[in-house]
């Protein structure tokens, strides 16, 4: 963009540049190269950690589009996770199509569902909206618990992936990596677009945004639908990696709560926040499992972390650092 010229009498404003692209490119290259190093200690553990981390980055970053940018907290977002998983899983069981191929289809299906759900749930505002998303989750749960064709509450098993066992994690790793990068890129593009500006406006004052000329209803529904896409994709991939479909894997509110938690810890409404939040929360979880074994203490530790973040980083780690001008340029993606 060109700076305004001085001929109009308007002062030119300085613009900031950074070389964060190089650093992020290196990080991405390391992530891409990682599966080639079979000699790594705990190779499978590292890959599994990558799978889980990328999945949560994709989900939290997607959730952030509606929960952060648009300011509408959805506690039912895992319906898309489950529906994506079931759709791809059933296509594998009954049609033999690989979930790696149908994951995109699952995402698109969730996108369309997002439009439908959005048309209904966005009639509510504030706390009523949050409750309506919980209601949505409960309805979908009841539906899947009782749908005998997909095994009801017992679930249904899927054929195992046809890969050699020593490489079995690699395709899942890459699928999740692509989803994570894709969802962060989507969030980045939205944050830097007029659409994102409109979402941030309506998040602060919906009436003002409307009067300024923004079609807030359409914006909210579009945000909801876009935020459903990658959640559906990773749901499909995750279901395949478990080779099992069961309502309690996908449709428990803890899954949605995790998205919210990660977004809040990292910085709701920032592009880098969900990435930071996912890394912090998963690192804390893994560490506490290492330190305290398979106890439930990791939940306590998570609670303490959340408390600390809310006390010292009220806008999340990224949000608060940016507010104080202390955010490292490498994390300043907004």
């Amino acid at each position: 963009m060109t700076a305004p010229t001085d001929t109009t009498g308007v002062p030119a404003r300085p613009r900031r540049r950074s070389s964060r692209g190089v650093v992020l490119g290196v990080v991405l290259l390391v992530a891409i190269a990682l599966p080639f190093f079979r000699g790594l200690p705990a190779y499978n553990y590292v890959l599994q950690l990558g799978i889980v981390l990328f999945m949560w980055i994709a989900m939290t970053s997607s959730w952030n589009i509606v929960g952060g940018f648009a300011g509408y907290i959805s506690l039912g977002h895992n319906v898309f996770y489950g529906i994506g998983g079931y759709l791809s899983g059933l296509l594998l069981v009954y049609a033999g199509w690989s979930p790696f191929a149908t994951a995109v289809l699952a995402g698109l299906f969730c996108l369309a569902l997002g439009v439908g759900f959005g048309l209904v749930t966005f009639r509510a505002h504030g706390p009523a909206f949050i409750i309506s998303t919980i209601a949505l989750l409960l309805m979908v749960t009841i539906f899947f618990d009782n749908w005998e064709f997909v095994g009801g509450s017992n679930g249904i098993s899927m054929p195992l992936p046809p890969f050699p066992v020593e490489w079995i994690k690699v395709p899942f790793y890459y699928a999740m990596l692509v989803s994570a990068v894709g969802s962060v890129y989507l969030a980045y593009r939205i944050a830097h677009s007029k659409f994102g500006l409109g979402l941030r406006a309506l998040a602060q004052d919906e009436t003002k945004a409307e009067v300024a000329g923004i079609d807030t209803r359409r914006f909210k529904i579009a945000a909801f639908a876009l935020s459903a896409f990658f959640v559906g994709v990773v749901g499909a991939v995750w279901a395949y990696s478990l080779s099992y479909l069961r309502p309690t894997i996908f449709f428990i509110i803890g899954v949605a709560a995790n998205m919210v938690l990660m977004a809040i810890i990292g910085g709701r409404g920032t592009v880098a926040g969900p990435v930071v939040g996912a890394i912090v929360l998963i690192a804390v979880n893994e560490l506490s499992v290492v330190l305290f074994g398979a106890s439930e203490l990791n939940i306590v530790v998570t609670g303490v972390i959340l408390l600390g973040v809310l006390l010292f980083f009220p806008l999340g780690i990224v949000g608060t650092l940016r507010e104080h001008g202390k955010l490292p340029a490498i994390l300043d993606w907004d």
Partner: peptide, 16 residues
């Protein structure tokens, strides 16, 4: 902020 309207392409275009 009021310029956040128009076609899909415009909406995904530059913020300002």
């Amino acid at each position: 902020v009021g310029t956040a309207r128009g076609t899909f392409r415009e909406l995904l275009g530059r913020r300002v």
